[in-house]
Design a protein around this nucleic acid. Structure first.
Lengths: 249, 249
DNA sequence: CAGAGCGATTTGGTGTTCCAACTTTGCAGC
DNA sequence: GCTGCAAAGTTGGAACACCAAATCGCTCTG
């Protein structure tokens, strides 16, 4: 706000305000670079810099040869995560529960745990674990990128197939229950960060896009059984956690 | 990766790779604009653009007169959210539970519900509600910005004081239990977005910073009792959700 | 040897210019 | 009236230049 602020920030704040208060509704055209330079009496550098900042924030988007336009307000699909009911173990709700066409492909392999995964699974470095990379798609669009790590000792009896799709899918809980292992606790740790190149490729994200990163660990008593990293496009989803009091049916 | 990619992206990917694989550890100096132009045989525009992109992603930061340096890997403080135990209502864990010096100031007022809040509280537009703005600080630094809305009918008996700090704080649950209202369900919806100017001011964030936005609603049976918007700096915190199976003590 | 001071270096803001790729528009010709 | 093409407008990449503010290192002085 200070008059000592750089010029381009003044433009940014001005346009942002117009978008917020509805003067520029979604779909409206932003003045072009040439128009901005005339309107505000600035150089082209400042004008394009302002547009770049607004575009990188997702408020507007540019079309080569056409112009810049106000983005639609992002509708974030609810992704139901942990849900708790009495007399049921904690579980995560599948994408299918959304009533959308969802598919899942995975690739599974044995590998050795790095320091981070080793700590989360409470094993030594280089312990052999089963790593499975999942790609979830909803309505054809990539929706989640998940990497799951299981302690191989637990799952050797009923191992993951090397790869497959949703048809051959057996949930973690089913496979573990066959081994007499009961999940007693699930912990999810959520944070946001910039998408890495691999994730941008898999999830079809632009440079600088933010993702929600979920570190999930399933516990059986005091032993972590499985841990996974789940990466979700930050502009397309919201995570919903529901908790129900035990004494109510 | 394609050779048709713009030059500045090649530089970005090259430096990003060096940061990721440890060639450039946190604190290491990035080559200056002049050095980059010589090293890659590019113009100054491309060099500074590459540095700007990396800086906007938070991977590096610039010091006027000194240079660009690799950022520390962000340590995100765990913010324990919903936790569920048998025979206890769902509750959110306070900041104090972190073992840190935390303070809280708030300002409370009666106002009329806008369409968004009205929908979440299942009331008509313009129904009178109690709005309370909280600012939580941890170790002196602003940590959370929360805006809570309560249906005035529930809380008129034991209203919020107009303003106060952590010393005069009575939790929502305590006030409601005095009125015989028992929270049976808590729903938290989490997403990430760019911080708005007001939030940047309150939380001391740079332009373009991302926040975690939590929409939380407390339910008593089928009636929403309180709903709040909780905004948390995305680079300083992670949200931890813990679920324990009912049948285990 | 300590400290002051100056100059080289670096970032960040801004202006100007040029170009390639693409879209939109309007006009000419059928 | 319709088609097709050319011109004008727009974005995005890139180069170059200039300046203010800040930092850093070296030198010179006391």
């Amino acid at each position: 706000m200070a008059s000592s602020d750089p010029i381009y920030l003044r433009i940014v704040e001005d346009i942002r305000r117009q978008i917020n208060d509805g003067t520029l509704p979604p779909g409206a055209a932003i003045p072009s670079r040439a128009q901005l330079t005339r309107k505000y009496g600035i150089g082209e550098t400042a004008a394009r810099h302002a547009l770049r900042v607004l575009a990188s924030e997702g408020l507007i988007f540019g079309l080569i040869g056409s112009g810049h336009y106000v983005s639609e307000k992002p509708e974030r699909t609810a992704l139901h995560r942990l849900r708790f009911h009495e007399h049921q173990p904690p579980f995560t709700v599948d994408l299918q529960a959304q009533g959308r066409r969802a598919t899942c492909d995975w690739r599974s392999e044995h590998t050795s745990a790095g320091p981070d995964i080793a700590q989360r699974l409470r094993v030594e470095d280089h312990t052999r674990v089963t790593r499975t990379r999942y790609v979830f798609r909803t309505d054809g669009a990539p929706a989640q990128l998940a990497t799951s790590y299981e302690r191989t000792e637990y799952t050797d009896g009923h191992p993951m197939p090397a790869e497959g799709n949703e048809n051959g899918r057996k949930s973690l809980l089913v496979r573990l229950s066959l081994l007499g292992i009961k999940i007693t606790e699930v912990v999810e740790s959520v944070y946001t960060r910039v998408a890495q190149p691999v994730e941008r490729d898999s999830l079809d994200l632009p440079a600088g896009a933010h993702v929600l990163h979920i570190e999930r660990t399933h516990w059986a008593g005091d032993s972590p059984v499985e841990t996974s990293d789940i990466v979700v496009p930050g502009d397309r989803f919201r995570l919903v956690y529901t908790a129900t009091a035990p004494s109510v049916g």
